[in-house]
Each structure stands twice: as C-alpha cells, then as structure tokens.
C-alpha cells in the first residue's frame, strides 16, 4: 500500500492555552466587543449595565469594522492591552 499525503497543515492545530479564568468580575476590565451585526449595540449596552451595576465590572465597549471579516490586529491589541476579559456578541 502506498503512503498518503495529508491535505492538512498540522501547524494550524497547535493549541493555544486558555488565559487564566477570572475568580470575580469586581474591579475587572471587561470589554464588550460588537461585531457590528444589527442590534448587537443594544444587547451589549444591557449586558454592560448588568456587569457594571450588579457585578462591579469596569466595562468598556469596542467593535470590529465588520462582522464579515476577522478583527484587524489593532482591535485585538486594544483588547489584549485594555481588558481582563472580553465578551463578543455574534449574532443578529
């Protein structure tokens, strides 16, 4: 039997470890990322209110230019530097 060649790039499967989980939301910087689908701003505004008022989180809002493409590096860098955790709102 002849050997096969794989269509996959095995390097694309290299695991990235998860960031440490937050123990509490109090005083933590939580970024709410809109991907700019309709209604995501309304949804994130309410979520931000709950996180801030009921859990003491320091909430900030950010957005991708469009839901149809990956977030550009500058958005990812803003989130990396400016947030302890990110909530991304995906759907309509």
């Amino acid at each position: 039997m002849e050997e096969y060649i794989s269509p996959f790039d095995e390097r694309s499967l290299e695991a990235v470890p998860l960031a440490p989980r937050l123990i509490s939301l109090s005083g933590k910087r939580i970024a709410l990322l809109s991907i700019r689908k309709p209604k995501s701003a309304e949804f994130l505004a309410e979520l931000g209110r709950i996180l801030g008022e009921e859990h003491g989180a320091l909430v900030s809002y950010d957005e991708k230019p469009t839901f149809t493409r990956p977030a550009p590096p500058e958005v990812l860098e803003r989130l990396r530097v400016g947030a302890d955790a990110v909530v991304e709102a995906l759907a309509d």
Binding site: I5, S6, P7, F8, D9, R11, S12
Partner: peptide, 12 residues
C-alpha cells in the same frame, strides 16, 4: 483555520 496552502496540499 489558517493552514498554509503549498501546491502539494492543493494537489492533494
């Protein structure tokens, strides 16, 4: 999924 497309993989 960010796999690199060599011509070999495309041929596969």
């Amino acid at each position: 999924g960010t796999g690199e497309l060599t011509l070999e993989r495309l041929a596969v």
